[in-house]
Design a binder for these strands. Structure first.
Lengths: 214, 214
DNA sequence: GTCTATAATCCGATAGAC
DNA sequence: GTCTATCGGATTATAGAC
C-alpha cells in the first residue's frame, strides 16, 4: 500500500527533525511506525531510499517558503519577501536546511537522484530571477545576475551556518536583526567609495564580475 | 611515553585528513599506529580526547596560514594577505577547515574544551583587528569593526561551504577567482548607489549596523 | 605498555514461516 | 505484509595476563 509508505515517510521526517541523521536508522524508524524492521523493506528498498524521500520533503517545504513571495506586487517586495521566507525557514526548520546541505555520500548515495538535483536547480534559478528583476528595477547594480546571486547566496548561507554552529553567540531574535543588517551591509558595500574605485583597477580587471560604478 | 602520544596524534591526523571523521575510529587508529586498540587507551582517555587533539592541530595550522600576513607592510596588504591565506588553507586542507566547523556533539563532546574556544576567539579577534586597521586607513567604511567582520566572515565561509558541497560547479582555479571577485563585490556593494541611500531609511534605522554613506 | 579476549551495543539487510 | 530469527559487520571500551 502506498498509504503505508506515506505513513513511514511521515515518521521518518519526525524522527529526523527530532534527532538528526543518526536518529534515523531503519530499526528506530520501524519502532516509530509500530512495526518491525523487515516490514520497512516492503515499502523502501533501503535506508538510502528513505533519506532521499526525506530530502524531497525538505526541498518542497523550502520552496513553499520562498515561492510565497511571488505574490508580492513589486520586484523589491518579492526580493525582500524571499529573503524573509529564507530566514523564517532556516530558523523554523534548521534540520531541514541542514539535510539540504549534507554531502550525498553522507546520506549513503554516490550522487543525488536527478529529480532532487532538478529541485535544487529550480531554487537556484529562483534567486537568479529575483536578482535579475531587481537589476531591471535599478535596485541592484547592473551586471551578471548569476554571479551577484552567488555573492548574496554565499553571504546568507554563511550567516546561517555560523549561527547554527554557535559561532555567533546571539539569540534567535538578535540573529534575525543581525541577518538583515548584514544583508544591508552587503548591498551598500563595506569599502569606502574611494577604495571601491581603486578596486576596479585591481582584482576586477582580471575577471568579469559584473561590478559597475553605477 | 609522550613520544608515543605524538606518534598516535600524527596517525590520527593522517587518518582524518585522508578518510574523514568516519575513518577515524579507535580500531583503525590502532591499526595505523601498528598496535592493538586497547594500547591507544594508555595514551588517550577515549576517542573524544583524540578528536580534541586533532582539532587543536587544525586550529594551529589555520593560525599559521593567517598570521603569515602580519609580516606585510600596509594595512591593505595584511588584509588581503590574510584573505589569501584563508583561501589557500581551505583549498589545501578542506578537511581541517571542515572539522573546525563541526558541531561539538558530532565529535562526542557536550561542548568544546576551553583552550580550543580560546583559539577560536583569537582567530575571530584577528579578523576584527584586520578590519579595524582597514577602517583606520579609510579602506573600509567607518563603523563597528566586529559587525563588519561578521559580514565578511559569513560571505567567505558561505563561499567555501557552497564550493565544498559542490553547489558551485567550478574548478579549483575558477573558485579562487570567483572567491576574490565575490569578495570585491561585497566590498563595493551590490545595490545601486541610489538604492543604497534608500536602504538607510529602511532596515538600517532599526539597528546599529555601522553603515555610513562615506 | 602492550597483548588476547570479550562485553555490550548498535547497524543494514535477508530468509523463510505465516 | 508482517512476523521471528539471524547473518555479518561495525563501534567504544574494559578485564586481566604478560
Amino acid at each position: 500500500m502506498t498509504d503505508q509508505r506515506e505513513r513511514i515517510l511521515g515518521c521518518a521526517c519526525d524522527l529526523y527533525l527530532k534527532h538528526g541523521l543518526d536518529g534515523l536508522s531503519m530499526r528506530k524508524l520501524a519502532r516509530e511506525v509500530g512495526v518491525t524492521a523487515p516490514a520497512i523493506y516492503r515499502h523502501y528498498g533501503g535506508r538510502e531510499e528513505v533519506l532521499a524521500d526525506v530530502l524531497r520533503e525538505a526541498h518542497r517545504t523550502f520552496s513553499r517558503y520562498l515561492y510565497a513571495a511571488l505574490g508580492e506586487p513589486t520586484q523589491l517586495d518579492r526580493f525582500f519577501g524571499a529573503g524573509q521566507g529564507f530566514l523564517n525557514f532556516v530558523i523554523e526548520h534548521p534540520r531541514w536546511y541542514s539535510i539540504m546541505h549534507t554531502a550525498p555520500e553522507h546520506l549513503g548515495m554516490d550522487k543525488l537522484p536527478e529529480d532532487i538535483e532538478g529541485m535544487q536547480s529550480a531554487i537556484h534559478q529562483f534567486w537568479i530571477d529575483r536578482v535579475r528583476e531587481c537589476m531591471d528595477a535599478t535596485i541592484l547594480k547592473d551586471g551578471n545576475p548569476e554571479k551577484t546571486a552567488i555573492t548574496m547566496w554565499a553571504h546568507a548561507h554563511g550567516m546561517v551556518q555560523l549561527y547554527q554552529e554557535g559561532c555567533l553567540p546571539v539569540s534567535e531574535e538578535e540573529f534575525r536583526m543581525l541577518f538583515k543588517a548584514s544583508g544591508a551591509r552587503l548591498m551598500a558595500g563595506v569599502a569606502t567609495e574611494a577604495f571601491a574605485r581603486d578596486l576596479e583597477g585591481m582584482v576586477l580587471s582580471e575577471t568579469d564580475t559584473g561590478i559597475q560604478t553605477g
